[in-house]
Amino acid sequence: MTVYLPIAELSVNIFIILGMGAAVGFLSGMFGVGGGFLITPLLIFYNIPPVVAVATGANQVVASSISGAITHFRRGTLDMKLGSVLLVGGLAGATAGVWVFSWLRRIGQLDLFISLLYVVLLSSIGALMLQESVRAMRRAKNNNPLPIKRPGQHNWVHRLPLKMRFKKSKIYLSAIPIVGLGFGIGVLTSIMGVGGGFIMVPAMIYLLRIPTNVVVGTSLFQIIFVTAYTTMVQAATNYSVDIVLATILMVAGVIGAQYGVRVGQKLRGEQLRALLALLVLAVGIRLAVGLIVTPNDVYSVAVGGMSY
């Protein structure tokens, strides 16, 4: 059964889109990631124009992050104040990102830039995850306990001015690195269509030393607002959010995520993470191949003018 996507301007098989959404939802439930960094490349592989894939991906992340954020809010593992400071940076970053996005589109380098960013991001994250999970597997085999993290350890981040007190997180930290982190993630949201949790969570834990229990809930809080804002701005400037595509992906995604969560609780973490790492690496390599192989046609045509 085919369905016509009005913004992407092509007909697709609805079951392939449903399958994609469910599979990515399943993985995101299993690993607790938003899934934007998988859905956007998959859409591009399926010939959805990158402009549409990115904007629609951001919309999809809103849905996949919301139920997690609600859970954390109920449990009280969400620092509103910290989230709001992150959000200030995030909204500014998303605005700057959409501006860069439109500019790249005008000069005809958008598709290349999106692919390049994904190749860099997916291959580095995939390699790091693989390394970490292999190390964890070895450790489990040798029965060595995890090295205990020493709390109270400070780095350069803690010497910055403009300090603020975050009661829920029980930390006293400069606003500069928080806004900066939010800004960077906001840029990635609008250019890549990701929530950015997979970068934000490690950065909050290892760089800002924010207690682990509030990190996931707080990052989800900021992701919802930044992706929702990005969806609005992309819709208003590039007209590239495909509501039909997004709805199919979201419905399949949230259902897939529920089953992913259940399976994830039963399976062993290290093997799972190694599998996800391999998947991320495979997607990155596939994108890299697309950049290197000779295209069928070196020319392309687009309606509209070109400006420098």
Binding site: N59, Q60, V62, A63, S64, S65, I66, S67, I70, T71, A228, T231, M232, A235, V241, I243, A246, T247, M250, V251, V254, I255, A257, Q258
Partner: peptide
Amino acid sequence: CVLIAIITGWGAS
């Protein structure tokens, strides 16, 4: 688009 996302996410939860 955002509203649909909120309803879908919230509804699922």
